[in-house]
Lab assay of single mutants.
Amino acid sequence: MGMPNRKYADGEVVMGRWPGSVLYYEVQVTSYDDASHLYTVKYKDGTELALKESDIRLQS
């Protein structure tokens, strides 16, 4: 078993793309699913969504 190939840690605050949009919002990573390679993130309004790594970026 190798290390999970994840870029962002639980609790890390990053920018997540809103689905169907080009806009990124501040989100907190809450979990990562090794099987689906999706991150569960929480937006400031409390919305929780699963995002692909390509829809997440570090805060500038």
Rank of each mutant, 00 (worst) to 15 (best):
G11P: 01
D10Y: 05
Y8F: 11
E48T: 14
S31D: 09
L38V: 09
T47I: 09
W18Y: 09
A9V: 08
L38N: 06
G20L: 06
G16M: 09
S54V: 10
E26H: 07
I56W: 01
D34P: 13
Y32S: 00
E48A: 07
D45P: 02
A50T: 14
W18H: 07
L23Y: 12
S54Y: 08
Y8R: 00
V29L: 02
G46E: 05
G11Q: 04
D55F: 04
Y25F: 13
P4W: 06
L49S: 07
L38W: 06
S60T: 14
D34S: 13
K42P: 00
E48S: 11
A35R: 12
G16T: 08
M15G: 03
A35E: 14
H37I: 03
V41D: 00
S60M: 12
S54D: 13
S54E: 15
A50N: 14
Q28W: 09
D10G: 02
L51Q: 02
Y25S: 07
G11T: 03
I56E: 01
S36F: 08
S54C: 08
D55C: 05
R6H: 06
R57A: 09
E12S: 09
K7G: 04
W18C: 09
A50S: 14
Y25P: 01
L23C: 12
T40L: 12
A9R: 11
G11A: 04
S60L: 13
A50M: 14
L38I: 11
S21R: 06
Q59G: 11
G46M: 04
Y43F: 13
G20W: 05
S36C: 07
M15K: 05
L58T: 14
M1C: 13
G2P: 14
Y32M: 02
L58C: 11
K42W: 06
G2M: 07
Y43M: 15
L49H: 12
T47R: 09
N5Y: 10
G16A: 14
G16S: 05
Y39F: 02
A35L: 12
E12N: 04
G11V: 01
L38D: 04
D55W: 04
E53T: 04
S36I: 06
R17S: 03
G20I: 02
V22H: 14
Q28C: 09
Y25L: 11
M1V: 14
E53S: 04
H37G: 15
V22D: 15
T40N: 09
T40W: 12
R6N: 04
K44N: 08
Y24S: 03
Y25A: 07
L23I: 14
D10A: 05
T30I: 15
D34E: 13
P19Y: 04
V41A: 05
I56V: 04
Y8C: 02
V29M: 01
S60F: 13
S54M: 08
A9T: 08
G46Y: 04
S54H: 11
A9E: 10
L38K: 08
S60D: 15
K7C: 06
G46Q: 05
L38H: 07
R6F: 03
S21E: 07
Q28L: 14
V13I: 15
Q28M: 15
A35W: 11
T40M: 12
M15Q: 09
K42N: 05
Q28N: 06
R57V: 11
D10M: 06
L38E: 09
M1Q: 14
E48D: 06
N5V: 14
M15P: 01
L38C: 07
L49T: 07
V27L: 07
M15W: 15
G11L: 05
T30E: 10
V29F: 00
Y8W: 09
R17N: 04
R57C: 11
G11W: 05
S21L: 05
V22C: 14
K42C: 09
Y24C: 03
Y43D: 08
A50Y: 15
L23W: 11
E53M: 03
N5R: 04
R57D: 06
A9K: 13
E12R: 04
P4Q: 09
S21Q: 10
P19W: 05
L23G: 09
Y32I: 00
D33V: 03
D34H: 11
D55G: 03
A35V: 15
I56N: 01
L49E: 04
L58I: 13
K52L: 12
Q59M: 15
V27R: 00
E48H: 11
P19L: 04
L23P: 03
W18T: 06
S31R: 09
E26M: 10
Y39S: 00
G2L: 10
V22L: 15
E26G: 02
K7L: 13
S54P: 05
G16R: 01
N5P: 15
S36T: 14
M3I: 13
W18I: 09
D33W: 02
S60N: 12
T47L: 08
D34I: 12
H37Y: 09
M3P: 14
R6C: 04
K42G: 03
V22Q: 14
E48R: 07
D55S: 06
K52F: 12
V41C: 10
L51W: 03
Y32C: 01
D55H: 07
P4S: 10
E26V: 12
Y8N: 00
H37D: 11
V41P: 01
H37C: 12
E12L: 08
Y8I: 03
